[in-house]
Amino acid sequence: MKVDIAACITEPGSSERNKTGGWRVFKPVVHQERCIDCGSCWIFCPEACISRNEAGEYVVDLDFCKGCGICANECPTEAIEMVLEEK
């Protein structure tokens, strides 16, 4: 691959190709019935990998979630549980 001048990255969003979810040991599991829709997990996720699906539920993009557990820690109703991931 040719390096662009000054190592410029000319393709927007190309970092998405670098899937970083593999770093994870624990994964967050959202118990939707306990969710009060406060949005704290969405706000606090440092990877911005929590989004809402069409049903309005908060879901985690496991391609990029590194399992840091901040979402679980911030959730006021303990609706997010960190579960040891089997690989």
Partner: peptide, 25 residues
């Protein structure tokens, strides 16, 4: 400037050049 900042053609400048690319730069 071929790599100028331009909202129509976004680029990332001053990015990381890890050991795979720094020497080439």
């Amino acid at each position: 400037l071929p790599h100028a900042l331009d909202p129509e053609h976004p680029v990332t400048m001053g990015s990381l050049g890890d050991p795979n690319y720094y020497m080439e730069c």
